[in-house]
Write a protein that binds this DNA or RNA. Sequence first.
DNA 1: AAATCGTATTGATGTGGATCAAAGGGCTCC
DNA 2: GGAGCCCTTTGATCCACATCAATACGATTT
Lengths: 244, 244
Amino acid sequence: MKSAIPVTTIEIKTACSQCNLRELCLPFGLDPREVNQLDELVGSRRKIKRQQHLYRSGEAFEAIYAIRAGSFKTDVILEDGRDQVTGFQMTGEVLGLDGISSERHSCNAIALEDSEVCVIPFSRLEELSRQVESLQHQFHKIMSREIVRDHGVMMLLGSMRAEERLAAFLLNMSQRFTARGFSPSEFHLRMTRDEIGSYLGLKLETVSRAFSRFQEDGLVAVQQKHIRILDTPGLKKLLNHHAA
Amino acid sequence: MKSAIPVTTIEIKTACSQCNLRELCLPFGLDPREVNQLDELVGSRRKIKRQQHLYRSGEAFEAIYAIRAGSFKTDVILEDGRDQVTGFQMTGEVLGLDGISSERHSCNAIALEDSEVCVIPFSRLEELSRQVESLQHQFHKIMSREIVRDHGVMMLLGSMRAEERLAAFLLNMSQRFTARGFSPSEFHLRMTRDEIGSYLGLKLETVSRAFSRFQEDGLVAVQQKHIRILDTPGLKKLLNHHAA
DNA sequence: AAATCGTATTGATGTGGATCAAAGGGCTCC
DNA sequence: GGAGCCCTTTGATCCACATCAATACGATTT
């Protein structure tokens, strides 16, 4: 299939082997030869404009997606129109795992900003992970990590107060920005108060008030979507010092 | 390790190939030869008495567990003592998937009644699923199903009112009992009101009141842990007819 | 630079479920 | 088979967050 002409600069730049996200993504733990095998499998990239769907609930499942650039939210919608954001995904994270069980996507994935994903045909991923043990293991870890994350959100939704939820959210974002080489204390949120609220099981006004409260208490400096964390230990204390 | 004497009746009875749960469990979709390979991998069974832990958060992860008999709950506990039930598991369901990501269990699994599980050493499962495509696929489906289930719980915790949560819970239990050949409308809950409440993000008093309300409205007949569903459509209506 | 629209903040009021409290019922374990 | 204890139910009160409402801000368009 591959032509004999040399690969273009762009193709090189987008290969797993050249991708600076590989420590966070599917190639983690693979040796260079194995990463090259993965490269062949990642057929195409897809650009998704802000507010566009990467996939929709009910669509046939054929591939999972690794985020190369940008960010997404996933949500589920009930018949009566209520919806709930189930997660926010950043570069290097994998989207679409929910579709494996029924061969149909069970949520919507929507770009929070202009973004790009690597398309990983799932049957070929299963095929290759039968041959490459480290890939198989990394894939299992990624799925398991999603389960653990979900349990954390269930804890948050089931037993935390509004300010604790927002503190947990901010600390989580900080940690994920840090893992991507950005500042732990200063970042730009790509989602609205309403989307944060949906994720945290709160109304947007409650999210806004909690932000204001944190600002009053000197925990963070908030300017719309731009966040500066001033007192990380203070935020952590908010989480744990709750009388049982 | 195995002695040369013929396998006992009990050992035969507990093999996957003879297990009547195989349609719900890991062997689903495997041909008889493949199920035999799985049999060899399922090293041992473990009996867990009511209230005993199958595993605890923080323990090294080595195996996943398929429930042969009985039922379990899983929970996560915060430093300050707050805890949250993240799921109830019935026969044929798999426990321990949360441990893959960090090689340590991230929650506790506790038997709700005297129970028995099949121990599936994880590294051997990965090994065999590199050889047996249908096993690999079934395992991936099981993990994905857990993710989808978790998203449903997030929806429930984030956007439903108390009675809707309980209705969703009862319908889910009914469906799972049905899948196991039991009555869809009459069953015995193994967990307390407190545990249901923890799972649903409610206090036990609220769960109790919701049960009483359902009883008044003729939706269910409740006698302690014994539940008879009288009006399934009524319960379903409660879920969907919510003004957005 | 003005107009528009989505997003955010802040205030006033309402309410669903939490909390506090007490009594009754049914298991479990001697 | 009885004692004790945990579990459940029900009532009264409280409070955290939702809801309703108005304004302000900022980005985008023209």
